[in-house]
Structures are given as structure tokens and as C-alpha cells.
């Protein structure tokens, strides 16, 4: 009897020791990998922030790891020159319009896809996806002609509608992912209790998928905010986004590197501010609600 237990126990104990030793060994070095990676991610951002607080003279003549003549001048230029700060306002207007439109039309559609089967549903779902995957370069020229025909060039709504091309499918896919996690019995119970569909949807269903709506809004906001090609093609002056304005920092005295860096830093801030709230859903959002 004792023989049997010892033959069983010995390899187990050895195995446990070896695995524990292994994991202890790798545990010591494991934090190094993410730390190195984060360092790699932060270096270029650090350099941009560093540059934004330098004078152009210092940027071009000396190589300093920390601004010697710490200055807010670059930020002052952006906040006092209307052609700069209007870029931010324009961007925010069309991004907000786009987010509103995208999520509003995506909500009922996502509900339909998650709850019902109907004629051509799978084809439609696939067709939506192809628009998320469509290269903006293919659409830049036809968009320009389409919105010219309607006299909408250089308006915020034109950019907002054009960005619906990839944001509506994204919102539908993300919301469908979240809605499918809500049991169908909840809908049925609400109908039995005498709720009409609109009242059920707004009063009961939307609070249940509030986090999903938040994530969909965030991703619409984000993809509209980071896109340049279509936004630049559809605008000339009145609705020009900040990202397009950034391409014209070349002045008579050469590149205005400091202002360019400051403008770049200011475009990172909105994303950095809201990232905390969606940190647990980022993977799900990027994978179109499918993780």
C-alpha cells in the first residue's frame, strides 16, 4: 500500500516542484517584457511632448532631452489663432454628429440582427462588414463628387455622413455583440407585462446594454477622430479638421516644429481621457464586438 502511494506521489511532487520553479523563474522576468514594450510605446510620445514645450530655436540648434527654456508659446499659438483652434472645433463637431447618427441608426438594426431572422439578414450583415473593411482611398474621389453634387462640400454634415460608411457597420457589429448577451426572456417578459416595443426598448433594454452603447459611441468617436483622408478631401476651409490643418505648419521661416508637436499632443488628449472608461472593452470593440 505504502509502495503504491509513494510511486504516485513522487512524480507528482517532482512535477509540481518543476512547474512551480518554472513559473517562479519566469515570473521574475515576466514584468520586464510588458515594461520594455510600454517604454517603446512611450518614447516617441515623450519626444513629441518634450518638443511641444521647446522653442523652435532650441529644437533646431540643440539636442536636449528636457526643454531648457520651458515655454507654453506653442500652445498659446494654437489657442489664440482661430485657424488653429477652429480645426479642433470642426473636428469635434463632425465627430459628434457622426457618433450621434451612427449609434442612433445602429441601435434598432443591431436589435433586429440579434433577435430576429429575416430575409437576407446574413447577406446584409456581411455587406455591412465589407463597408467597415472598404479602403477609404477607394471612396475619396466619388465622395467628393457626390457631396459636390449636393453642394455639401466643406460642411460638417458631409464629413459626418461620409464617416458613417465605416462607423455604422462598426456600431451595428459592436451593439449586436452586446445585445446577444442579454437573454431573450427579458424581452418576452416585458411584452407580457404590457410594454410597447418603443417603451420597452428605451426604458428596459437600453439601460441593460448601457455599457455597449458607451463602447459603440467611443469607437465611433475614435474612428471618426483618427481618419484623415476622407475628412481632408471633403473640406476646404470652413470645416477643415485639425488633422488636415496640421499638414500646413510650413511657414516662411521654415517648419514650425514646436507648434506641430503641440497640435499633435492636443489631438492625443481626447483619446487618453476616455480610454480609462473603456479599458476592459477595448479588445471587444476592436474585434467588432466578437471576443
Amino acid at each position: 500500500m505504502s509502495d503504491v502511494t509513494s510511486t504516485i506521489a513522487v512524480p507528482t511532487r517532482r512535477a509540481r516542484a518543476s512547474v512551480a520553479g518554472n513559473s517562479r523563474g519566469s515570473a521574475r522576468f515576466a514584468p520586464l517584457i510588458p515594461a520594455t514594450y510600454i517604454l517603446f510605446l512611450m518614447l516617441p510620445i515623450y519626444w513629441l511632448v518634450n518638443m511641444s514645450f521647446k522653442t523652435n530655436e532650441e529644437i533646431q540648434s540643440r539636442f536636449t532631452l528636457w526643454p531648457e527654456n520651458f515655454t507654453f508659446r506653442n500652445y498659446e499659438v494654437i489657442f489664440t489663432d482661430p485657424s488653429w483652434y477652429n480645426g479642433y472645433i470642426n473636428s469635434i463637431i463632425y465627430v459628434a454628429l457622426n457618433t450621434g447618427i451612427s449609434v442612433a441608426v445602429a441601435l434598432p438594426a443591431a436589435y433586429a440582427f440579434s433577435r430576429y431572422r429575416f430575409l437576407g439578414d446574413k447577406h446584409l450583415f456581411f455587406w455591412l462588414l465589407t463597408n467597415r473593411m472598404a479602403p477609404p482611398a477607394v471612396f475619396a474621389l466619388p465622395f467628393f463628387q457626390l457631396y459636390s453634387a449636393f453642394g455639401l462640400i466643406d460642411t460638417h454634415i458631409a464629413v459626418a455622413l461620409a464617416h458613417c460608411l465605416f462607423n455604422v457597420p462598426l456600431a451595428v457589429w459592436i451593439l449586436e455583440g452586446f445585445m446577444s448577451g442579454v437573454p431573450k426572456e427579458i424581452d418576452e417578459t416585458a411584452y407580457i407585462d404590457g410594454y410597447s416595443f418603443p417603451r420597452f426598448f428605451v426604458k428596459i433594454f437600453m439601460p441593460l446594454i448601457a455599457s455597449g452603447i458607451g463602447v459603440a459611441c467611443f469607437f465611433c468617436f475614435m474612428f471618426s477622430w483618427v481618419e484623415l483622408l476622407i475628412a481632408r478631401t471633403l473640406t476646404t476651409t470652413a470645416a477643415k479638421p485639425i488633422s488636415a490643418i496640421m499638414t500646413r505648419t510650413v511657414s516662411a521661416s521654415g517648419m514650425d516644429w514646436g507648434v506641430l508637436a503641440a497640435a499633435g499632443v492636443l489631438t492625443i488628449i481626447p483619446g487618453a481621457l476616455v480610454i480609462w472608461f473603456v479599458r476592459n472593452y477595448i479588445a471587444k470593440g476592436f474585434a467588432l464586438g466578437r471576443v
Binding site: 483618427v226 488633422s243 496640421m246 499638414t247 489631438t267 480610454i275 476592436f286
Partner: peptide, 9 residues
């Protein structure tokens, strides 16, 4: 963070 930076930036 890098995922949320505008592409031209």
C-alpha cells in the same frame, strides 16, 4: 494609447 492617436499624428 497608440491605438487612439489620429493616424496622421
Amino acid at each position: 494609447l497608440p491605438l487612439l492617436i489620429p493616424w496622421n499624428v
